[in-house]
């Protein structure tokens, strides 16, 4: 598989936008739309990829602000989200599967940061988790109950994956299941 990430400044923050593609079919999915960097468009073109999906982890502005521009560039792409966010939206929920070329993604509910946050797991090898989990941290929540819900989802659905499984969050550096299981101060 082809995997790339870009970082975009977004209201004093830095948001990550990810790309995953099937090496055989060249079909690709973009994960989150907090920006639409020119470097990403150029990489998609130079690798001869065809964007078939845009996967949205949650609806905060720093994850969807550039969705309109993205859909103008790739009008046939299906947007997978928990709410209708564009004309081509496919509403997804826990347990759904998506096919990007020969790559299969499972949708898992990782609510807490928002009530409808989801993550996309590609074959136990890579997780795009939005703002549920960060390197050494977890996503901010509005209450203690939501925080506990988020931690439970992370423990039961992400930390059960293999140690080397890569986690690409919505902000900050890449991490792995092994690192977070061992040393995330919020998950002890």
């Amino acid at each position: 598989m082809i995997v790339r990430s870009w970082m975009m400044p977004c209201g004093g923050q830095e948001s990550n936008i990810h790309l995953i593609a099937c090496e055989s079919t060249r079909e690709a999915a973009i994960i989150d739309a907090g920006g639409f960097p020119a470097e990403m468009r150029e990489e998609i073109k130079s690798l001869a990829l065809r964007v078939t999906h845009v996967l949205i982890t949650h609806g905060h502005h720093d994850h969807v602000d550039s969705l309109g521009d993205m859909m103008s560039a790739y009008p046939r792409a299906i947007v997978c989200a928990t709410q209708r966010v564009s004309e081509n939206t496919r509403i997804v929920a826990e347990g759904d599967t998506l096919q990007v070329g020969e790559l299969r993604a499972h949708v898992i509910q990782t609510s807490g940061h928002t009530p409808d946050s989801i993550s996309f797991v590609f074959g136990d090898e890579i997780v795009f988790c939005g703002d549920a989990l960060f390197a050494g941290s977890i996503g901010g929540t509005s209450s203690a109950r939501m925080r506990q819900e988020e931690i439970t989802h992370i423990r039961e659905k992400i930390l059960c994956l293999p140690d080397d499984c890569e986690i690409r969050p919505g902000h900050g550096p890449v991490t792995t299941v092994g690192i977070e299981r061992s040393s995330n101060p919020f998950l002890e």
Binding site: I2, V3, R4, S5, W6, E23, E39, M40
Partner: peptide, 10 residues
């Protein structure tokens, strides 16, 4: 960043 990654041709 768009860095190369180790995921290709594994």
């Amino acid at each position: 960043m768009g860095l190369p990654t180790h995921h290709e041709r594994v």
